[in-house]
Design a protein around this nucleic acid. Structure first.
Lengths: 163, 163
DNA sequence: TAAAATCCCATAAAATCCCATTGTATCCCG
DNA sequence: CGGGATACAATGGGATTTTATGGGATTTTA
């Protein structure tokens, strides 16, 4: 049970005055190969100070996985609670946004706050999903491998910003 | 679980003003026998100052291996972080590029920098994957066997460059 | 009816396609 | 077996298309 097309690569895009951001074309192409949707859902990442993003096909997969987990251990009362909590996080704590014909989404203010995204958004493919970072926060995080920070620095340079 | 067709051989190709490079035909034929894709993914080699390259079939294999590792040790919290890090390196720190009908890719500027590739790219088959070197860096590296350096020198002469 | 979201158009840079050339390896046939 | 004919690989250059992005106009929503 795996998705055939995986997200990979990195890009640094601008968030404009209206809060719009282009989703990099190479990520959109994966979304559109996985299904026929043109939306992404956003969530606070569970361990990093960034956003986690994915497409409807992945969301469905994740939901099915939760269901199966529940069926397997449904006797335990703890399992019930955990299932409720996970379900809340997976659906209530996320936002689904469409991207327009030019590939841009309007970053919802709440998510923008949760992910601490400023006027630059660093997109990182991570296989089944992708992440959206404030590049400065990534550079500060001790858990991020140096090689990846080099990439973030390169993307910043490429764009003219220093750091 | 091993791949049936292996990359082998060497070639020295030019990187043109637009950043385009021909992928040697004998490497492309392996890619196309492994699957029906016409793309390669590029990554910084983990120990040599060059790029590591492979096809989607190999990438899928590698991903499946990572997933299995996670399932085995998913209880530990350290394991979670390690998984996140590996995933970032495997996907965010790589770039997938298609080659066109004439067998050329556009070498992404970031990879070109990471691999320190100038206007000559030395391709070396290494079985499951292949490597792309700046030939001068290969000649300088003390870890590279002399016989292989001879091959690099031969490829350079063949092309007219001395060294 | 304001504010916010969406649509539409414009643009510059970058990526991609298409065609042409050249050298080399392979084929074919007398 | 020779020698031209053919096919393919690598590469250059121009034309075309896609991407990321800004800004104005229009529509929706509260």
């Amino acid at each position: 049970m795996a998705l055939e097309h995986l997200f990979q690569g990195s890009a640094l895009n601008a968030v404009d005055a209206k809060g719009r951001v282009s989703i990099p074309a190479f990520l959109r192409s994966v979304i559109e190969r996985r299904g026929d949707a043109r939306t992404i859902t956003l969530a606070k990442h569970e361990s990093f100070p960034c956003l986690s993003a994915y497409d409807p096909a992945y969301a469905a997969l994740k939901h099915a996985k939760l269901e199966r987990l529940l069926e397997k251990e449904e006797t335990s009362p703890d399992a019930q609670l955990e299932y409720q909590q996970r379900n809340l996080m997976a659906f209530a704590a996320t936002e689904e946004v469409p991207y327009d014909s030019s590939g841009r989404i309007l970053m919802p203010p709440m998510m923008r706050r949760k992910g601490q995204i400023g006027d630059l958004a660093l997109f990182l493919g991570t296989g089944e999903t992708f992440q959206i970072w404030n590049p400065e926060l990534l550079l500060k995080d001790p858990r991020i491998p140096d090689d990846l920070k080099d990439i973030a620095r390169f993307r910043l340079e490429e764009r003219g910003a220093s750091s």
